[in-house]
């Protein structure tokens, strides 16, 4: 609401704190797990590859995220499984 006044005063509203927080979240995950973003990505891909050897998964709806619980990192995977299309073996 004071935005137009700030504008009048010639101040820019940049809101750079959000960028700092988002970037720090990722950096801290990398630091704490000692995994680079690329390694994390390839770990996810391998994981899915192994799982899909046994069951059919909905790869578009898969979510694998590093989360934080206190100072503990946790890898959370939510992997929807396609309805069993009766094994034909």
């Amino acid at each position: 609401m004071a935005d137009w006044l700030a504008w009048l005063a010639g101040k820019k509203t940049t809101k750079s704190a959000g960028a700092a927080k988002d970037r720090l979240k990722l950096v801290l995950i990398n630091d704490r797990t000692d995994l680079t973003p690329a390694e994390l990505e390839s770990m996810k891909n391998e994981l899915l590859l192994v799982i899909s050897r046994y069951i059919e998964i909905d790869s578009n709806a898969v979510r694998i995220d590093m989360t934080q619980e206190g100072r503990q990192q946790r890898l959370l995977a939510d992997i929807p499984i396609r309805a069993a299309s009766r094994r034909t073996r």
């Binding site: 700030a6 101040k11 509203t13 940049t14 809101k15 750079s16 704190a17 959000g18 700092a20 927080k21 720090l24 979240k25 801290l28 934080q68 206190g70 100072r71």
Partner: peptide, 19 residues
Amino acid sequence: MVKRGDMLTPADVLELLAV
């Protein structure tokens, strides 16, 4: 700076560091 959104708030830092 916090008010205009250009500095991490104490709450942000606590959430990140969890201490």
